[in-house]
Design a protein around this nucleic acid. Structure first.
Length: 774
DNA sequence: GTATACTAATTGC
DNA sequence: CTCAGACGCATTCGG
DNA sequence: CCGAATGCGTCTGAGGCAATTAGTATAC
């Protein structure tokens, strides 16, 4: 009913005093531990098993887990910590969620001063209110005064809180609390804070990147702490995260003098500067800047600073949650002094979250939204920030489905339509009122300079009375001579920057499927039926340059099945299925995955490719896969040379349980050097294995590979073949490694792909393929 | 000094 | 891009 | 009738291949 929940409000109001909270949490843990531990034995499921297994450690260490976290290096501890987190969350669930709920009712009688509970809440509320402008605050330890820059430590403390829970409402809560305080104390820092939470430095469409990777970070950490790159690398394997390694290296190090504490704006400015270093010696300058920041870090700051630089905060906080927190925080901060009923606040927050999400999906720029929000409040925001040609909007995405029956179940009794899913690059085409044309990618990067050929043709696709528009399309590599679609791999060879019309080697055809804005009006709230009519009425196809996506308004399985097969036969990936009327607006904020996609490889036993491959190596896992192998190297068997040829790595498709089992199993088959009959090209795994097990693996396509060696010499003289989107299906215990898929089979599968065989046929006959029409 | 080869980073799917 | 896990929410099931 | 179980959608973070680009190191 409402996305805002009472525990959120309660814990927010009650969270005024950090020390009280902490104490309470500990009490909860102590009280809950024993009953929880005993009941867990009767329960099944992995989660429960983990709890049981680690019960003892949990009892001993739960109270000083933060201390442990920063000081303990061993792998075992890290894993325990991971599991402990689950247990803590379990306890939280019992305490934090039940207790506030029981007080909910008293919140309802807002003015009832007789109730003991409600007086408690008032006290809590009062404490929260005193945050602002006084020393007695949640953030008092950080010496943060109104009007002054937000200390980086405050942000990192919030990150730590967030990282230590998996509860989404709680995460949202921690961030909201911080944002409210910032709005009240240092509103100028709100924008920077939000960017740091999201690990970004500017709107996506501005395209500024950090240009920092692991290698440079290792160098910087090494120089800042006096450690060798090699020892840092071994630590990463143990700790699974460069941020943790930096934290460790830093805490072991004694600093001679204390630099001024970091602030949020200073860190943000530092990141932006790093991003803007270019040209000769820029890497050295980046390293020096990082070193400077690192040296100024205190407490847990190195961990989060380094993770920010890595581009992955990995604390369970991302865009959607940040947006919700912004909405919640702005309402709460606007109503701090007012006494509004719980219901009233709740509904205002729900509405604000909806508003923020929808505004952001139409105009994904915090640079614009946040200042407008601070200045004008949430009420007038949608009149200031709205869909504008020239600024990309968040694209609608599709939900994968496993079968056509699933599609029919979901869209039962609704009118829907099926479209070809072309294998190319998403292209959002904008024409501004002033005539300027731009193209944006799925991630809102500006592609105008990549596709000058498309930009040039944009004015010709619209009918005369059209002044401005935004279209949603797919750009697909196109063979002009034979009038057929080329593989994605061909498209990706196009230059990306400073493309001159003259040096375009790969032609593209644009397949349009939606119209989001037309002649000064946004169409996103209209039904897809209406939008598609607008598209078809206002634009004209040009052969080989601009076409509408092929579609059929079928509604029975047979028809759709035929259309699906036809799409694959026409070199497409499968179908997109969209409702025409009900719930068919283009509002990614509502449901970003409102469309369904049926890809040929999803359908089990169907057209999709599945291979039986041998495991010959592995890579150490990072993050939540620390302590197990995060990915494996697979090979096919070559009869001719009696060797195993690498075909791909694989890192998805297995459950946590399987992942652990694989790790256990393959630890018994480690070999120190690769066998002479392993041919792996540049795919060097961290650990080599004896060829003992066969895995069934599924993929979407096969491609010519610059690294892997499968079927080398059969399709390409020097290059092998690899798999696109590989995923683990199951262990094939019935097969020995010699019975794995062979190189010949791999080569055959490659050649049998429609898009390959069609093009081979076309280039051999030199004529137009008659079966191929648009 | 300039051309070339290599590596790391980013981005598409 | 694929996939699994955790969470939150809604609905159904069973004592 | 209420709490437990179940099912579904969303969100997040693990992991994949292959291409260009930018910066650096090396060779001539």
């Amino acid at each position: 009913m409402s996305s805002f929940h009472q525990p959120t409000l309660f814990s927010f109001l009650n969270g005024g005093n950090k020390k009280n909270n902490k104490k309470k949490d500990n009490e909860c843990n102590n009280n809950e531990k024993k009953p929880n531990a005993t009941t867990s034995k009767e329960e099944t499921g992995l989660k429960r098993k983990i709890i049981d297994k680690n019960k003892e450690e949990e009892l001993n260490e739960s109270n000083n887990k933060n201390v442990k976290k920063t000081n303990d290096t061993s792998l075992k501890e890290e894993i325990n910590l991971k599991k402990r987190k689950i247990i803590n969350d379990d306890n939280e669930e019992k305490e934090v969620f039940k207790k506030p709920k029981s007080t909910d009712t008293s919140m309802d009688i807002d003015e009832n001063t007789n109730s003991q509970d409600s007086t408690k809440i008032k006290k809590a509320e009062k404490k929260t209110l005193t945050i602002f402008g006084s020393q007695d605050s949640e953030y008092q330890d950080f010496n943060w005064k109104a009007g002054e820059p937000v200390p980086y430590a405050v942000l990192c403390k919030t990150f730590e809180n967030i990282e230590n829970t998996t509860k989404r409402i709680k995460i949202q809560d921690y961030l909201t609390k911080l944002l409210v305080a910032i709005i009240k104390l240092s509103p100028n820092n709100l924008l920077e804070t939000i960017y740091l939470c999201l690990n970004r430095i500017c709107p996506e469409y501005e395209g500024l990147e950090l240009g920092i990777g692991e290698t440079i970070l290792i160098k910087a950490i090494g120089e800042a702490t006096g450690r060798s790159a090699k020892s840092i690398k071994t630590d990463i394997e143990k700790q699974g995260d460069l941020g943790n390694v930096a934290q460790m290296s830093k805490s072991n190090q004694k600093t001679l003098f204390k630099p001024k504490p970091l602030t949020v704006p200073a860190v943000f400015k530092g990141l932006k500067e790093i991003a803007m270093f270019t040209g000769n010696q820029s890497q050295t300058r980046k390293i020096n800047k990082i070193k400077g920041l690192l040296i100024a870090c205190n407490g847990n700051e190195p961990k989060y600073l380094i993770r920010s630089l890595e581009g992955k905060l990995r604390i369970g906080l991302a865009e959607q949650t940040v947006l919700m927190s912004i909405g919640q925080a702005i309402v709460l901060s606007e109503n701090m002094e007012k006494r509004k009923s719980k219901e009233r606040l709740e509904s205002e927050i729900t509405k604000a979250i909806e508003t923020i999400k929808s505004i952001y999906s139409e105009l994904p720029s915090y640079d614009i939204i946040i200042p407008a929000l601070l200045e004008n409040g949430i009420q007038n925001l949608s009149s200031i920030c709205k869909l504008t040609p020239g600024i990309p909007l968040k694209p609608m995405l599709a939900h994968p489905t496993k079968s056509l029956t699933e599609v029919l179940n979901r869209f039962e009794n609704l009118t829907f339509t099926c479209e070809y899913k072309y294998d190319g690059e998403r292209a959002q085409i904008h024409k501004l009122e002033n005539g300027e044309c731009r193209i944006y990618s799925r991630n809102m990067e500006n592609l105008s300079n990549k596709y000058p050929d498309i930009v040039e043709r944009i004015p010709r696709i619209a009918k005369n009375d059209v002044t401005s528009f935004v279209l949603d399309c797919e750009a697909v590599a196109w063979d002009k001579e034979n009038k057929c679609i080329l593989p994605f791999q061909v498209l990706s060879t196009r230059k990306r920057k400073n493309v001159e019309a003259g040096d375009i080697s790969v032609q593209v055809c644009v397949f349009a499927f939606d119209c989001l804005y037309l002649n000064g009006k946004s169409l996103i709230k209209k039904t897809f039926k209406e939008r598609r009519e607008a598209l078809h009425n206002s634009f004209t196809p040009i052969e080989g340059e601009f076409t509408f996506a092929k579609n059929v308004n079928a509604n029975n399985v047979d028809e759709i099945q035929t259309f699906l097969e036809q799409s694959v036969n026409d070199s497409c990936e499968g179908l997109m299925i969209k409702t025409l009327e009900v719930d068919s607006s283009y509002e990614p904020s509502k449901r970003s995955r409102n469309w369904l996609k049926v890809k040929k490889d999803y359908i089990s036993g169907g057209i999709g490719d599945s291979l039986d491959l041998v495991v010959i190596g592995a890579y150490t896992g990072r993050g939540k896969r620390t302590g197990s192998y995060g990915g494996y190297l697979l090979a096919c068997y070559d009869n001719e040379n009696e060797e195993y040829q690498s075909i791909c790595k694989i890192g998805t498709g297995f459950s946590d349980e399987q992942l652990e089992k694989h790790t256990e199993f393959f630890k018994q088959h480690i070999i120190t050097k690769p066998k002479p009959y392993y041919r792996v090209g540049d795919a060097k795994p961290d650990i080599w294995f004896d060829a003992v097990q066969v895995w069934e693996v599924k993929c979407a396509d096969l491609s010519i590979s610059p690294v892997h060696q499968a079927a080398v010499g059969l399709v390409d003289p020097v290059k092998g073949i690899s798999l696109r989107f590989p995923r683990f299906l199951r262990i094939r215990d019935d097969k020995t490694p010699e019975m794995a898929t062979t190189s010949e089979q791999v080569a055959d599968m490659y050649n049998q792909q429609v898009v390959i065989s069609k093009n081979n046929a076309a280039s051999q006959s030199g004529g137009v393929d008659d079966d191929f029409e648009y």
